[in-house]
Design a protein around this nucleic acid. Sequence first.
DNA 1: TCGAAACTTTGGTCGGACCAAACATATGAA
DNA 2: TTCATATGTTTGGTCCGACCAAAGTTTCGA
Lengths: 245, 245
Amino acid sequence: MDTSASTGTGTGVGSGRAADNVVAALEALIVSGELKNREPLPAERELMEQFGTSRTVIREAISKLASLGLVETRPRFRPVVRKPDYATVLHACGNVVQHLLADKTGIKNLYDSRVFVERTLVRDAAVSAQKDDIVDLKAALEHNKKAISDSDEFFRTDIAFHGVLYRIPQNPIFPAIHEGYSSWLAPRWNQMLRSPERNEQNYLAHKAILDAILERDPMAAEEALINHLNAAWEFVRVTFDWDDE
Amino acid sequence: MDTSASTGTGTGVGSGRAADNVVAALEALIVSGELKNREPLPAERELMEQFGTSRTVIREAISKLASLGLVETRPRFRPVVRKPDYATVLHACGNVVQHLLADKTGIKNLYDSRVFVERTLVRDAAVSAQKDDIVDLKAALEHNKKAISDSDEFFRTDIAFHGVLYRIPQNPIFPAIHEGYSSWLAPRWNQMLRSPERNEQNYLAHKAILDAILERDPMAAEEALINHLNAAWEFVRVTFDWDDE
DNA sequence: TCGAAACTTTGGTCGGACCAAACATATGAA
DNA sequence: TTCATATGTTTGGTCCGACCAAAGTTTCGA
């Protein structure tokens, strides 16, 4: 859309927001590593002197950096530098996403996109999963099995199983996406009733997916995945008494 | 990760940030529609009185709303209310994403994810594209053809062709993703040399994809898409003299 | 009727002040 | 010496009042 990042405030003086200069400067210091990851930012009053500007501007800059995910601010603590990674992006989206999940349509859209992604994930897994991927999947499935009687634990291992799928492409974007789905979607049906029966059902569904992957059958894997997620959605739908298709 | 949205400042007084209350309140006013979309926020001094707090807090709140994408702020203008939609999410991510595209690895990751998405997009299109989808695709392809001699125009119609793909699932998330890919990735190879020859090549690639879709052949469609995007990437790779695989 | 000038509103910035919590240091009992 | 407690300093969060310049509005003359 806009290339604001590069155009910025231009000559650096005059146009618009003074905070932007500070943001840009600190941004540079962070990516260059001069401000080391996980370390606190200098005190506001220090930065204020360092940049020859008022505390107002410094604070605004810090606020902006925080919203960019480059620093983490806790109420009464020094902001902590955080080098941006893929998780940062998701974190930045998070707050906005909430609004889109206000109605069932939004939730359904997100859920559908998840199905969309995982379909290809399992297809690809069936075609090209490596030995260690298989090992991970088997282990995750085993954790499922062991946790059938403990719904809370099963919930975690359930997410973990899908997580393995997202790691297979070796692209850090996917685990981040998984993190997103997990943190945005899962809480929605947190208050949903769980039971060893359902857990077992889900375990079997996971097993069916893994079996198809082991057989190197993308079609079957995709189908098993679709069945699994459709069933899960159906359960959600019934639970919350949603009428839509 | 954290459920800060719900826990928030709790009783509203004391713990942490006063601005959060204002943010929450304005947030509510915006989603409820009391602050209508596209309309300016009340003046800071007015809000300040309305919330019984200082301008500092109001400004911080507005800044936060802006970073949430709920209002748009231009340097010397009143913030404009903006009801969050899927594009808002992408916009929020945008700034952070830039940092991840600093090196070729980041770009490749993003590009790969795009391929990943579009593969399923075309598969699904081959299986279930409706008549009007087909019409749109044909029209987009026709625009490609007509623009072969005009590289700038072709660039646009190229994006538009892929955009049609993203609209087929009828899920607003996908067009937003497309918007993301377009605005983050495309500018990277803006300075890449274009030519009618390459345009024609891309046109033909698009045509191959559409043909496969028309034949209802998901495999062929996916393959055509992969060939198309691989070739495009190869061109990028060579242009920027990247060595990686 | 219309555009320029004068006035008012309002966002951006500044500087100073105060509070309370975090942090650092000193102190005294064990 | 050790460690917990008391004391002192730093620092983020908030508020106030002020000023500037640009945006918005009204006035007024051509």
